[in-house]
Design a binder for these strands. Sequence first.
DNA 1: CACCAGGCCCTAT
DNA 2: ATAGGGCATGGT
Length: 215
Amino acid sequence: MYIDLMKLYDLLSNEYKISDGWWPGNNKFEIMLGALLTQNTNWGNVEKSLENIKTNSLMDPEKLYNLSLEKLEHLIKPSGFYKMKAKYVKNLLGWFKNYEFSFEKIAIKNKDELRNELLQIKGIGKETADSILLYAFDKLSFVIDAYTKRMFARLGFKIKNDYDTYKLFFEENIPEDLLIYKNYHGLIVEHSKYICKKNPICQNCFLKSYCKLDR
DNA sequence: CACCAGGCCCTAT
DNA sequence: ATAGGGCATGGT
């Protein structure tokens, strides 16, 4: 079946109001950190961790890099998997240190090169890498997550249930526009809050008439 | 009480 | 290549 991605984008935009760029966070570093901490974790829990870091005046890559693992673990405890994530944060910061913790130095680098470097960091998978690339580094790299796959499966879209297949499908069918990339993923996450989680066929979804599944 | 949340790594087939 | 277990907190 065929899905017009920009038509779907317009439908979602019309249904949900989100802020431009969507990702919650005051600065690039906070966004980068949040992308890692939110792995399989409710955003509300991530916010608690980010608050802990801020109230201790540690929302700074170099300061966190120099912080002991134990203290870091304590700060990010609310976002779950905290022992593993503390190490992952350290790994990410170790990589960031190669660029002297500077987003300007990152910005001049090639997108694919950066993506490969991120993917080699233990704790950074495809979704986290793409989230950081798109929302913190402003690179055109579409983010796929569980919501995206679930939503498209429910729309009756036949596609290989594979991260790269989904990513390519989006990137080949939407304009090369940062705001569209950012907002599109945001709209899908927003939409996921309202669809039925258990029933595979949602009965009260506003896209119901657009859905090609047999009911 | 059970279940889930904006994944990822490691291991065993 | 791919499936399944472990990781952990806080909200509903």
